[in-house]
């Protein structure tokens, strides 16, 4: 209360000093709103911006017992170590390829599902389907990995069991094989997140003005024509925004999604920056090095985002900013 009174006093004094400033008067008139903004700003400063300062350990030899300030500066040593790391190219290739597969296969999946559900006319069916498909979102990746194991295991797996009993062949080794790891990662990701992803697109679909459909029908457009000329253009802004955000995270695949599936037999095609950061950082205690990896990932993500945003603005007129 004291602070508010003091602020009010200062405010009234400065009003006397510069009575002509329109911006100041605007601020004073609406000051309750600005005060209400304070907790949000404080939250972002404390929770989002302060931790960014910790990034300096990417340029230091951070020792948890010395603390951030007392640790020695080492310049770009960790970046040098990253770029000369023998498996750097392998990590980069796996990260980018899995990301690409996700954009090609996993990103459109919820759009297609949302469009299909949008065509459903029975509300109850739509609601039930919607609830069922987004339930897996609430399972943790560890559980999903367990389910995948129960499906694909060569000894106890349901799918492999069916395959063996139908064809009489030997079971197919999928979990311990490098060729199938990326497919497993991307498709288990689709299964888990597709329903959840539809929510935003279904919301965007309800935002399309019904009069547009009416106009199209009057002009003689069929269902397919309506879809192409009304639904899809109406959905495009949401698609572009989400695609751009996804591109900004092109280097982030999520450690918890991939780590449970990795073993030495498939690591050559499944190892990504996120799993490597975990192994080296948390297990190996190399905080500085893994921070450098994280910073590298963020910079790449940022550049991709800026470029993609430019391209998108030029091509479709839609952008994030």
């Amino acid at each position: 209360m004291h602070a508010t009174k003091a602020a009010a006093a200062t405010a009234s004094r400065s009003r006397q000093r510069s009575p002509g400033s329109a911006g100041w008067q605007y601020f004073v008139r609406h000051h309750p709103f600005y005060v209400m903004l304070v907790p949000g700003i404080v939250y972002f400063l404390v929770m989002k911006y302060m931790p960014l300062l910790g990034t300096v350990i990417a340029f230091k030899d951070y020792n948890i017992f010395k603390g951030i300030l007392a640790s020695e500066w080492v310049g770009l040593q960790w970046f040098h170590q990253l770029f000369t790391y023998p498996k750097f190219l392998r990590l980069l290739e796996n990260t980018l390829l899995i990301s690409l597969y996700q954009i090609v296969f996993a990103f459109p999946a919820p759009i297609v599902l949302a469009l299909l559900m949008n065509e459903l006319r029975m509300m109850t069916v739509k609601r039930i389907v919607q609830t069922l498909v987004y339930l897996p979102h609430f399972l943790s990746w560890t559980i999903v990995a367990g389910l995948v194991y129960m499906l694909l295991s060569t000894q106890t797996g349901l799918l492999n069991g069916l395959y063996v009993s139908w064809t009489g062949n030997a079971p197919i080794e999928l979990l311990q094989s490098a060729d199938s790891i990326r497919t497993i990662i991307v498709s288990s990701g689709i299964w888990k997140e597709v329903g959840w992803g539809t929510i935003i697109f279904l919301a965007a679909l309800t935002g399309i003005d019904p009069s547009l459909y009416e106009a199209a029908r009057i002009d003689g457009a069929g269902r397919w024509r309506q879809f192409l000329s009304v639904t899809l253009p109406g959905l495009l802004p949401a698609i572009m925004v989400l695609l751009l955000l996804k591109l900004g995270n092109v280097m982030d695949l999520g450690f918890e999604q991939i780590y449970p599936f990795i073993n030495p037999l498939n690591a050559e095609k499944g190892d990504v920056f996120d799993t490597y950061t975990y192994v080296a950082g948390i297990k190996g205690g190399q905080y500085s090095f893994t921070t450098a990896v994280g910073l590298f990932k963020s910079v790449v993500g940022f550049l991709v985002l800026v470029l993609a945003n430019k391209a998108s603005k030029a091509a479709t007129g839609e952008g994030l900013y």
């Binding site: 209360m1 508010t4 000051h31 309750p32 005060v35 209400m36 304070v38 907790p39 404080v42």
Partner: peptide, 15 residues
């Protein structure tokens, strides 16, 4: 208006 301010500030303090 003041009550609104006080409330907001109060919440901030609680947080």
């Amino acid at each position: 208006k003041w009550a609104g301010c006080a409330l907001t500030l109060g919440m901030a303090l609680v947080v």
